[in-house]
Amino acid sequence: MASNFIQAFKQAPWRVQMQRIGLVLTGLVSFALIAGLYLSISASTYAVGVEVKELDWFKEELLRQNADLSTQKARLLSSAEMKKRAQEMGFISPSPQEFVYIVIEGYQGRQLEIPPKPPKSDVKQYLIKPDYRQSLWEYLFQGILILGQNSGVFQ
């Protein structure tokens, strides 16, 4: 009786095989998906890492060029250079007797100048996006969290 009952509900062998194959395939597909995701994120991280390095070099280059250009400008505006240009334009140095003092309302005379100062760096600013500083687990967890919040599941 019992064996008949089991036999009555026992699945056909081909269905059992299909189930097993399905399970194996599901495992493989899952593995491939995770591996693909991992590869994709790794590749992006590498690409961004390289970009970060390039940006660092570019930043260094820009800083050097800035320094160089400000010195070039200073050379072009140096006393000797300005004097030469003024002479070429026909200006002459007046004698002390030629000066006339005129009172100009509100004129304060030459004012002290403070050169541009570099910004103070109190706050730690990350150059790399958080996406590229997270582990795969953090990335997935945060992704699920954001997805959940957006869909209203975690509200």
Partner: peptide, 17 residues
């Protein structure tokens, strides 16, 4: 490159007026 990190912010030498 995967482990690339921010270059520290290195302030320039002091400017003197």
């Amino acid at each position: 490159p995967r482990k690339a990190k921010d270059l520290p912010d290195i302030p320039p030498g002091t400017d003197i007026i």
